[in-house]
């Protein structure tokens, strides 16, 4: 049982004690405080800004922008990644503390998007350089789509086991959740 599903404690002191597994408790905390790296390269960055704006307000999901990768749990790759930029993305990702998550936002970050066919300088998908957890389609995706992608990621975060076996090798691109298409990677190992 996840922490969130437990009944609210009443006045009885015995009811104010919650028993749960450490892993679940940590996952509950992580899931509700996905601080994201303020990192936008192109058009999707504007929608990311709008998602942080007053109407969509991702702060209510515990998502607060961080300017430095050291404080961030989540990197939202918003926009086109060129060959020149790719090394920088990798460096930023390496600077994030584990556990770290990557959401690829928009067609360009997923596959190169409108630039994949003709461009000489655009990387065909950011997953060539960093492992991606969730892909969000759209050019650019609406803020609702971004929030939906984050919800998919939260399920993944909930299954993450801090104390158990590490299920993520940081240097291997592993299975990813893709809400709208085929499942490109192998399924998540269940703890």
């Amino acid at each position: 049982m996840a922490v969130a599903d437990l009944p609210k404690p009443g006045n009885d002191p015995h009811e104010q004690i919650v028993l749960t597994a450490v892993d679940e408790f940590l996952a509950w905390g992580k899931e509700n405080s996905l601080f994201y790296l303020l990192f936008a390269t192109a058009c999707c960055g504007i929608e990311l800004m709008q998602a942080g704006g007053p109407r969509y307000d991702v702060d209510r999901l515990g998502m607060i922008p961080r300017a430095t990768p050291r404080q961030a749990d989540l990197m939202i790759v918003a926009g086109t990644i060129t060959h020149k930029m790719a090394g920088v993305v990798r460096t930023l990702w390496e600077q994030m503390t584990e556990p770290r998550w990557v959401v690829s936002m928009g067609s360009c970050a997923n596959s190169g998007g409108p630039f994949s066919k003709w461009s000489y300088s655009v990387l065909n998908g950011v997953d060539k350089y960093v492992p991606v957890d969730v892909y969000i389609p759209g050019c650019p995706p609406r803020p609702e789509a971004l929030i939906d992608g984050v919800m998919a990621l939260r399920e993944r975060v909930r299954r993450y086991r801090t104390m158990g076996v590490r299920d993520r090798d940081p240097h291997v691109v592993q299975g990813a959740d893709c809400r709208f298409g085929s499942h490109p990677g192998k399924p998540e190992p269940q703890a």
Binding site: T41, A42, G79, T80, T82, K84, M85, V88, F115, W118, S119, Y120, S121, V122
Partner: peptide, 15 residues
């Protein structure tokens, strides 16, 4: 510059 050089001018010659 050039971190977002997406070769839009070259694409214009292809389509």
């Amino acid at each position: 510059h050039g971190y977002l050089h997406r070769s839009i001018e070259k694409i214009g010659e292809c389509i």
